[in-house]
Structure formats: structure tokens, C-alpha cells
Nucleic acid binder design. Structure first.
Lengths: 163, 163
DNA sequence: CTACTTGCAAATCATTTGCAGATGA
DNA sequence: TCATCTGCAAATGATTTGCAAGTAG
């Protein structure tokens, strides 16, 4: 049963019917938008590995194309927004800048943020989701999504001493 | 917010040794900073009632002083930062802008955010804190703080139909 | 063809900062 | 006194947008 809706939080891994690139192409087609090489380069880079990144880091990986003037800063920002609209990326704000991560094809999760090394560590907790729903029920609140963010020091930095 | 369980109710107010104003004066003194009338006006306005606000809303309340040029935009921003440093206010980011709320003299809590009316509803859950600590322990992570943010539709907007 | 896209540069927007005059301790 | 403030205006920095030229369908 492919093609799950994005409000499904219950699975450790999410089966997907299409690769991110196809899925994006579909999104564009549906909106009368075009599949350009710029958009293709960006999607390819973004989904080449799973981690958190901001616009600048992404542009760092695309530096070649940018310096050749085949891709511009503006287009990167525009495409990032489209990827979020398309449900392929999730955007969060961390220290003033926007940070993105894969949303499509990955299970939902929350984060531990190490204040020392700035690492984001993912975790998933069914109990947290249950708790969220219980709180929402108590307030007659209809949940669309949630975000749990725990700040502190990660195992590595703790061992590295101090702080 | 009446009508809650005892366990929650007992945490609704936190006894403090000083009023926010005194506490801020203390903070300033300790840092060799001065208690000016501008800082006094801002603290007084900020703690005159408990709610969430951003820099612009605050300046709306201080419009009189600002138009008389006894207080400037820059000073409001500078003082807001000092209040956060002093531990009197907590800052969060919501839709690109900074939103503040009382931290001193107020129990810790998390938020339900209504996407329709933009209201922030506070809640406190001991179970959430326990869960947070359990997750952290599992990752050998030292917790400093956390933030849980649930997005959706509040009771009022749900009743009012649709979006 | 031609409507959607792009690169470029200029524009935003909230927030910050440099400076010279003002002021609290 | 005099180091710390303040208002002002200009500077930031990330992100967005207007526009004329480029290009997918």
C-alpha cells in the first residue's frame, strides 16, 4: 500500500511509491510547473544523502554549478520552498536560519540538539506521539503535526569533558 | 485556565523572591549596567500581563513613548535581549519573528499552536518531562531544556468550522 | 510558440550596530 | 566625572522579488 498521506506518523520506515525525483516531477506537473535542469540538480543533491542542511551548505555542494552561472542563489531558495510545498522536505528554524531535512521516505522523528557541537540527533518515540494526542484531546485540539526539540550536550561532547 | 487536575494546578505559579523589576535591577547591577528609565518602562510593560508578544506588539504598547522620542526601536530590541539574558523572558521563533513570554515566576510549559487563529495555548505535562529524560538517558544526552510545539486547530476554530 | 523559469540586482524585513550626544552611579 | 546608554540612521544577513532574457512542453 504505497502512497501514504503525510499525516501518518506510525511507521519506522515509510514505504514510498516513487523516488524523490519522480515525486517532485509529479508535483511540478500537477501544478503546471516545469522540470528544469536546475530543479533536477538541486533535488539530486538534496537526496543524495540523509542529513540536515541549510541553504548555504546546499549551495556549497552546488558551488561548481553556481560559479559556472548555471544555477543561482535565488533559484536554490525558490526550489527549496517548492520541495517543502511538495512535502519532500521539512523546514525548521535553528538559530535564525532555516534548516531542512528529508520528509518524504523517512519516518517522522524529533531531535536532540547538542549545544556544544551543533549536532542534531534524531529519535523517534511512539510514547511521545501518544502523549501529544492525549494532551491535544484534553484541549479539544486537532493535531496536524508536532515538533519536540531537546537541547543539551551529546554523549561525545560530554565525554570530551567539561561544559 | 481553571479546571485542571491537581498535579498540574500545583505548578501554575512559582514563588519568586523578587518582582521582575527588582530581579532585572539586580541583573543589571551585577553586570555593571545601569537602570535607565527606558529599561524601566519596558520591563513594566512586559510584566504588566501574561501573554506572548513580539517586538512590534510591545512597541505598539509603548507607542506613546516612542512617538515622543523618549524610547527607540533599537532600545526595545536591546532590552529584550537583556531580559532574555537575565532569565526573565524566554524567546522562541515563530514564523520568522521572535516571540517572547515570561520565564521568571512562571512555570515551565509547552505550546499548542492554532494554525487558524495563531493563538498559543500553554500546557504543562510532567509525563512529557519524564519522557524527555528517558529519551535523553537512552542517548547519553544531558538535557538543558526542551521545547514541544504542537501545531493544529484549537477548539474554538474547530467549532467555527473549517480552517 | 509562450507561459513558466532563471540569473541578476535590487528590495525586504526583522534585528543589529556605529556614533555622538545624553545620563545614571 | 565618565563609563554606560540612547536615538538615529545606516548596516546586516538571510531570504524574496521585479524584470528581461532563456527555455521546457
Amino acid at each position: 500500500m504505497p502512497g501514504r498521506r503525510k499525516s501518518d506518523f506510525s511507521l519506522r520506515s515509510v514505504p514510498v511509491a516513487m523516488m524523490p525525483g519522480e515525486r517532485f516531477a509529479e508535483f511540478l506537473r500537477a501544478g503546471g510547473k516545469r522540470l528544469t535542469s536546475q530543479r533536477r540538480w538541486i533535488v539530486e543533491q538534496v537526496f543524495s544523502h540523509h542529513d540536515h542542511f541549510d541553504a548555504d551548505e546546499l549551495m556549497g555542494h552546488l558551488a561548481e554549478l553556481i560559479s559556472q552561472r548555471k544555477l543561482s542563489r535565488a533559484t536554490v531558495y525558490r526550489t527549496l520552498n517548492e520541495l517543502v510545498e511538495a512535502g519532500l522536505l521539512r523546514k525548521m528554524t535553528l538559530g535564525g536560519r532555516s534548516v531542512y531535512e528529508h520528509e518524504y521516505g523517512y519516518p517522522s522523528h524529533d531531535h536532540l540538539y547538542c549545544q556544544s557541537c551543533n549536532r542534531l540527533i534524531e529519535f523517534h518515540s511512539v510514547a511521545l506521539e501518544r502523549l501529544r494526542d492525549a494532551v491535544a484531546r484534553e484541549h479539544d485540539f486537532q493535531v496536524l503535526s508536532h515538533r519536540m526539540f531537546i537541547t543539551g550536550y551529546c554523549a561525545i561532547c560530554r565525554r570530551a569533558g567539561g561544559e
